[in-house]
């Protein structure tokens, strides 16, 4: 359990305390990752299934390393190739996997709301590894973790999220978590990429990159998709990078020296970030990768192990 929650599907449902529970535990998990022997027996005998309906080597591997570091058994189930093509429904697939009695089902799906639907039909804990443009809670938590680590706190800090906000589950999970830790949020991108009514989530909207990043303590740069067939949001990546991409010159002129730059990866080098910035002093992108494992360890531990379920066992 994470606070009241049996699942980790949407940070929108999580309170400040529940978020902090994960983040605090992730600090100890990160310690484990720094040891020479990176393995603890905390989840021995527990099983975790990675059920990915969308390809994502990064996120899947991160959950996989997290599970293995905690000594859990792990099954990777790539759904696109097998069951789905045979016409099996999402609920059928989830129930079949449940018959294997996993403790946690990690699910990635292109449709927003899919993990919630699965959670209603299975008995085990469900962790969303990203659903459509809804949420990517472990990414939101690892972004918070990275910011706490780099900035000390999010209290009173200003975070700018730049890019295709409308299609971004990362942006939504950041928006549902960072303000609960005291951060002020700015959203920036071409107006075509700013979803309707997003100000209601407690953020200011900026079309001008400079306005959004000047004075910010952190910037989350989102990956830009080259083409969205049938609904062109930008004329091309060239103009995008000119107006909404960060290069060394803009970073030098506009950013606070202490400002950190995050990116959920993989970076489109030369589009949203120039290589000098992606690899430069502001970038904490590689820290995010390691922190992602620590945060996912904390999530899996709390949902599959934790003191409560251990008592039941």
């Amino acid at each position: 359990m994470i606070g009241r929650h049996k699942h980790c599907i949407a940070l929108a449902d999580y309170s400040r305390e529940e978020i902090l529970e994960v983040l605090d535990l992730a600090v100890s998990m990160k310690e484990v990752l720094r040891r020479p022997i990176k393995k603890v027996p905390s989840l021995r005998g527990r099983s975790i299934v990675n059920l990915f309906f969308e390809a994502s080597t990064r996120t899947r591997s991160s959950f996989e390393i997290a599970a293995k570091t905690l000594s859990a058994d792990l099954l990777n189930w790539t759904a696109s190739a097998s069951s789905v093509t045979k016409g099996e429904t999402l609920i059928d697939t989830a129930r079949n996997l449940e018959a294997m009695r996993p403790d946690v089902l990690v699910i990635r799906h292109a449709a927003g709301g899919a993990p919630r639907l699965v959670a209603e039909h299975v008995g085990c804990a469900v962790v969303s590894a990203g659903d459509g443009a809804h949420e990517h809670p472990s990414q939101g938590l690892l972004d918070c973790f990275t910011l706490r680590e780099k900035l000390g706190t999010l209290e009173g800090k200003t975070v700018a999220i730049v890019g295709d906000i409308s299609h971004s589950r990362v942006a939504r999970s950041d928006l549902h978590s960072m303000p609960k830790l005291g951060a002020k949020m700015r959203l920036c991108g071409p107006p075509t990429m700013i979803p309707a009514g997003v100000e209601a989530l407690g953020a200011t909207v900026h079309y001008d990159l400079r306005e959004a990043v000047e004075g910010a303590d952190a910037i989350v740069m989102l990956r830009i998709q080259h083409e969205r067939i049938g609904d062109p949001l930008i004329p091309g990546t060239r103009e995008y990078s000119k107006f909404w991409g960060l290069n060394a010159k803009k970073a030098a002129e506009w950013l606070k020296p202490s400002c950190v730059i995050l990116h959920p990866g993989p970076v489109n080098r030369g589009v949203e970030l120039s290589p000098e910035v992606a690899d430069g002093p502001h970038s904490v992108i590689l820290d995010q990768v390691q922190n992602g494992v620590a945060v996912r360890m904390a999530i899996l531990y709390l949902l599959a192990g934790g003191t409560e379920s251990e008592a039941k066992a």
Partner: peptide
């Protein structure tokens, strides 16, 4: 109409 919507939006920037 979809393109017109995007054009109005994008020009706002």
């Amino acid at each position: 109409a979809g393109l017109m919507r995007r054009a109005l939006e994008y020009a706002k920037a």
